[in-house]
Design a protein around this nucleic acid. Structure first.
Lengths: 219, 219
DNA sequence: AACCGCCTCCGCCGTGCGGGGGAGAGCTGT
DNA sequence: ACAGCTCTCCCCCGCACGGCGGAGGCGGTT
């Protein structure tokens, strides 16, 4: 626990917010504020320079907003820091964009001090805890709301279509079986039927066919 | 801090996992394991009975899976507990469903002990920290939009990107090898790297990730 | 009744796949 | 000179996958 402290960079256009955050974080022995930035562009350069563990990034900032700054940092650095987006409103539309470009999480400005500190510690030393990369695919996931009638769709039975949809979410046969409440052998039968009817050689080709034909759609 | 302990219910079909979780949590003075369940149906009834603060819910369970158990608990209780989904794979498709039905978060089984404890404490006493209720509106509200650059695309090497593209056309390893003019063993190495970096369990999940992230597009 | 499509499940079996190592060559930046 | 990354290739191993054939039940159609 008493190793090197968690190095944090604060990016917010309001000085008051920055100092508030700094006061909170400086009170913690294992956290060190390594830099500050007041614009998105500044944030990018400061982060590149000091190479922190965590960045607290405001969404609304002049020149470049927090989203694009996040995007640039994650895209251009080889070992990028974990970026926590700081926002005022829970339903801020920016939040969704932040998640999509790869932010590790977000905190509300009205959060209690210890919640903020918890968040920093959490993202600093866990790359797989609450809502990781998976969330970023969520938007795409739920956009699958458009049946487009592929040529072979009519030939698939209801059950086979169910199985194909679950295959296209990356599930293994045993998992599909659990989901549908049937035995693994049954799933294998349906999978075989799907492969035959779609002309696919394996489940991967079947999933590709499902995407390409519009049977299922990405975001 | 020294009020009533956080009461936790463990739901997992494997006894070993349950005891492991129990050992970890019992070591914490402010956490108390109030009950265990080995099936989804049992989880629902146990949770109703002991009324815990937090439920650690496995996704894969007999009778009723963790998703439906979560759904039932949240739907039928007036003050439902916070439910943390426990999963093995970061990209487990169940995760999306878990979020949609209202899970508070999820942890990976390979997480460190203190990460688990942090997660329990976090969800127990914060309803507005990392990824709160707002995320659940994501599926409904923020259905479409462009995924932009996937966070892992930058981390793929040129060769790995080549391999992923060929994987996404349905080619087997040997075929990719022939296409790239290298040996099959080399392709296997690249495939393994792609799986690791995308968090995919097998080539099918990797291809799905490629589609969903916009790395490749249908048509 | 006879037929047929669909769903459910059971074996057996070969193999491609993915995890776990390791290793050498080349190239870059310090 | 050295570390670090990438690309190349090798081994062993366990297992999920997919191909094969077979079977029973159930509901429609003829």
């Amino acid at each position: 626990m008493t190793g090197t402290p968690i190095r944090v960079v604060l990016a917010d256009d309001e000085r008051m917010v920055r100092t508030a955050l700094r006061v909170i974080l400086d009170a913690e022995p294992d956290v060190e504020v390594a830099g500050e930035a007041s614009t998105g562009a500044e944030a990018v350069s400061v982060v590149r320079e000091v190479r922190p563990d965590v960045v607290l990034m405001d969404v609304r900032m002049p020149e470049i907003d927090g989203i694009r700054a996040t995007e640039q940092i994650l895209a251009t650095m080889e070992r990028p820091p974990r970026i926590v987006v700081v926002t005022t409103f829970e339903n801020d539309a920016y939040v969704y964009d932040a998640l999509r470009v790869g932010a590790a999480g977000f905190v509300l400005k009205r959060s209690a001090a210890d919640e903020l500190v918890s968040a920093v510690r959490l993202v600093a030393r866990s790359d797989s805890l609450l809502y990781p990369a998976a969330v970023r695919g969520l938007a795409a996931e739920h956009a699958r709301r458009r049946p487009a009638a592929p040529p072979w769709a009519a030939r698939l039975t209801d059950r086979e279509a169910d199985v194909l949809r679950l295959m296209a979410t990356g599930l293994a046969n045993a998992e599909i079986a659990g989901r549908l409440g049937v035995g693994p052998a049954t799933v294998k039968t349906h999978v075989a039927a799907v492969l035959a009817k779609t002309g696919a050689r394996d489940r991967t080709q079947a999933v590709i066919a499902a995407y390409e034909s519009g049977f299922i759609t990405p975001g």
